[in-house]
Design a protein around this nucleic acid. Structure first.
Lengths: 251, 251
DNA sequence: GTATGTGAAGCACTTCACAGCT
DNA sequence: AGCTGTGAAGTGCTTCACATAC
């Protein structure tokens, strides 16, 4: 039985020379565990893997057993070469002349993304949005389990939404450490967002899905993804107004 | 008084030779209107402009009058060079030795993004998420006005949320054309999403903010932005499980 | 002195094209 | 014959570094 371990930044700071890693390099064996160190994987690649995963899930549900990079590309509007290259960062999952076995690739990507376990999630802010998130049925099937909710407002604390009791922020540290929560969803007003994010970093949260219209600053080892519908809409209105005349000063 | 016009794809298809445009090229004068044709602007650049806009808005609200690319970069975690380069696609908005006048740059970017007008928006699907969107107060201040909501479910039709009556899908074409709606927000279950998106394209919607966990296919002249929290979370779990051992078959 | 705007250099991602396997 | 996996080529975005302007 063999294992692999993804090491994202391997910097033996104690001196002794630089180490340049190549994809697939096996560096050392530690007890029973063989560690394979992968070279840097581009962030854009990582962000596409969940899309492949979701599509493969859909295909699997509809009973498809095999798919090739061309068909997958058509569904996702991505070139076949891109898909093959992306997958090749993680292994060889296909068969020449055939394509990819849907179930096999699905399992492989589940492992790559770390979805072969349950991730506990905390929701901060139980306003209209927070409650919609708690009630959203889409998290469970993918292994995300919302196990706690918090709010600063004493009038919300103690209430129950979706079978989850709203706790005061003062309990954040305790609950996060006791439940070993690594992921938080921020659904508080913009004015509170930065403060809340700082608290989350403080108590050891490592991934934050931020619905507040801010770009909070966090240490490099804490990941943030911002979901801001306004920003998304504005990126589209730019294209909508092509050929519309806009006044500027032209010396 | 001078104007500029952003032409994104200028392809005189009637023959007569290729036209390669350079940033800032002035191509022709038509009546009172000088048209300046900008070269292709990278999509990543366009997607960053709304972030600059939001931050400048925040700064303006807090009374800041001047900012330089360094400070703006610190807030947004973007290099100063990147910010200056991005802005340079659209004009020269700063002063050497000084920086950017916040209000002036804000106005300029408002024009660039086409936010110096009101954009009417339709929401499709008034489930929990759709209602949260309709009730979200963040759209108004940025010029997005939700003017209509639709749902396929007859039990929802006729109800009123946030002062907006839910209409049946059969009225979509009429309302969109009469109200001149160009933007739609899709908040229906995944199973209906593709069908709904096709209907939206059909009736002339040009920009879609899609909350369903799908990647709908649309003509090139219809923009889609997908907001899928699961995909965002999964891109983060990849990094969370660094150094975690994952079983694979290593021949 | 300070900070912008921008060609040029550097770097990273995408696409090509084909060897290799089925 | 068909499709993957992948070096190499191509493309495009980012960063540099400095002339220019305040």
């Amino acid at each position: 039985m063999l294992f692999w371990s993804i090491i994202h930044s391997f910097m033996p700071s104690g001196g002794g020379g630089d180490v340049t890693m190549q994809k697939g390099d096996m560096i050392y064996q530690n007890g029973d565990t063989a560690h394979i160190h992968l070279a840097h994987i581009p962030e854009v690649v990582v962000s596409r893997i969940p899309q492949y995963f979701r599509t493969l899930n859909d295909l699997f549900q509809s009973g498809e057993t095999v798919i090739n990079s061309q068909s997958l590309g058509k569904i996702l509007q991505i070139t076949p070469a891109q898909i093959r290259k992306d997958l090749s960062y993680f292994g060889k999952f296909g068969k020449q002349g055939k394509g990819y076995n849907v179930e096999y690739l699905l399992d492989a990507l589940r492992g790559v993304l770390g979805l072969d376990r349950e991730w506990k999630v905390a929701v901060i802010g139980v306003g209209r949005l927070g409650r919609a998130i708690i009630g959203y049925p889409g998290f469970g099937p993918d292994g995300f389990k919302i196990v706690a909710s918090f709010d600063e407002d004493p009038r919300q604390v103690g209430q129950s939404f979706g079978g989850l009791i709203v706790r005061p922020m003062s309990e954040l540290a305790n609950v996060v450490s006791k439940e070993n929560i690594k992921i938080a969803i921020v659904a508080v007003p913009a004015s509170q967002a930065n403060k809340v994010v700082n608290m989350l970093v403080e108590v050891g949260i490592k991934a934050i899905l931020n619905y507040a219209p801010t770009s909070p600053i966090t240490p490099k080892n804490v990941r943030v993804r911002n979901i801001d519908p306004i920003v998304s809409l504005q990126a589209m209105t730019f294209y909508l107004q092509s050929e519309k005349e806009v006044e500027i000063s032209l010396v």
